[in-house]
Simulated assay, not measured.
Amino acid sequence: MLGERAPIAAVPPLPPAEAAFERKTPAQIAVRLGVEMALGRLRARRPLLALGLGVSLAVAAAVIEVAFGSSGAVDRALLATFRLVTPLTVFALAADAADRTTLREAAWPAARFGASSHHVALGIALAAGLSAALVGALLAVVVVAIAHGPGAAPLVRDVFTSGWIGALTGAAYAGWFSLGATFLRRGHGRFVPLAADFLLGGSAGIVGALMPRGNAVNLLGGPPPLGLGQPASAGLLALGALLLALAAAARCKE
């Protein structure tokens, strides 16, 4: 009939994924953007080459130690990997996650459109930590698989133990490098914790307890820093990885 209004069509509900996205706070969206940016950078050619080089060095360390004798080869190869290969590989990946610049500048592509640089930086640091944990576990597992001999502990137990130690160590290194990337131009401050770990990370004092290397060596059965027990070293690595990522993000506040 003339003058009657057409019925208003019902608005279809949002798909579950889009509805969940709509419910996220601006902070959650900014963190997610940071994670996606970092993971996208880590899928590029350069970080993949760095990962390949790290795995190759870990394989070489295992083969060399086996050549010197199968007895204790796993422990020696793991120590060599955790002292040199893991920090260098994680250093390269953490730098690429931050686009080889400061953490604040790495967050700018999203922050310039209104996202909080603090939360975007937190997403980048968390993604770097998660990726480093996976890489640390991978390097440790590769070493155990190659260097494992008939006189060693059961393979499954060795793989599991070395894997979680590698994961904690990798995440802790990433936390230090993310925090270092908030200092100096182009994030060159990340070289400071790398140098400190190489020079003082194996000490028995407080620096050895703060840096990843000393705690990783303790978990592998080496001398503990400050006489710490292995559970304390594991807790320091896990807590340090989280607190350092938060501290790095806090330095990127507007």
Rank of each mutant, 00 (worst) to 15 (best):
L210R: 02
L242V: 14
A128T: 02
T169P: 09
G54E: 05
P223G: 01
L237I: 08
L88R: 06
S70L: 06
A73C: 07
D99E: 08
R190L: 06
G34W: 08
R32T: 13
A196D: 04
A30Y: 05
R32L: 15
A128L: 03
S71N: 09
A241G: 07
L199R: 09
L134R: 12
A44N: 11
G136Y: 03
A249V: 00
T169I: 10
E22C: 12
L219W: 08
G114Q: 05
A19C: 02
G205C: 13
L200T: 04
A249K: 01
T101Q: 15
G151E: 12
N215M: 14
G34Y: 09
L130D: 01
P224N: 04
V66F: 06
R76D: 00
A128M: 04
L168H: 03
M211F: 15
G69R: 09
T86W: 04
Y173Q: 12
F91P: 10
P193F: 08
A238Q: 04
A195N: 00
G3Q: 02
A92K: 08
H119R: 06
M37T: 09
G202E: 00
G34Q: 11
I206M: 15
G229R: 05
A94Q: 14
S131G: 11
G227E: 06
E254A: 11
A248W: 07
L237C: 08
R32V: 07
G123Q: 10
L226F: 07
D158Q: 12
V192I: 15
A137S: 13
F191W: 12
G205P: 12
P150L: 13
S162P: 01
G40E: 07
G180W: 08
